[in-house]
């Protein structure tokens, strides 16, 4: 299984939730979900990397005025990404099960 970075994971999950988004949409969702700002080029880099791994695919959308007449590139997650994420999540929940009575051990939290 190919390794996935944490930012990649979040972006991929956003894409699984919202198909056909561009990087600005992703940034907005990122902000809504985590209440943190993220720079657009950082998303570009992540998207480009994931496109190479075959987890996302892209298509051109319609040009809009606020983009100065430029077309959007819209990204969607692929089937392999979906499979990978389900697999990853089951691994994670398996691991999480192993943590017994967390409240006892980390009482101070």
């Amino acid at each position: 299984m190919e390794l996935i970075g944490s930012l990649e994971e979040i972006v991929l999950m956003i894409l699984l939730n919202h198909e056909r988004s561009n990087s600005v949409d992703i940034a907005k969702h990122y902000h809504d979900a985590l209440n943190k700002h993220i720079s657009i080029p950082a998303i570009h880099v992540v998207l480009k990397r994931m496109e190479k791994k075959g987890w996302v695919k892209s298509e051109f959308g319609e040009p809009t005025a606020e983009r100065g007449g430029r077309r959007k590139r819209l990204y969607s997650a692929t089937a392999s990404a979906y499979n990978m994420m389900t697999q990853l999540n089951s691994v994670k929940s398996e691991l999480w099960k192993g943590i017994t009575k967390p409240s006892l051990r980390y009482e101070g939290l």
Partner: peptide, 30 residues
């Protein structure tokens, strides 16, 4: 086309959200 368009779009979004100055600085930074 993609990158410049995205940056412009993000600029306008941020103008509304956080004001023009911050949007401008973020645009330069990005």
């Amino acid at each position: 086309e993609e990158i410049q368009g995205d940056l412009h779009e993000a600029f306008h979004w941020r103008c509304e959200e956080r004001g023009q100055t911050i949007a401008q600085w973020l645009f330069i930074y990005e």
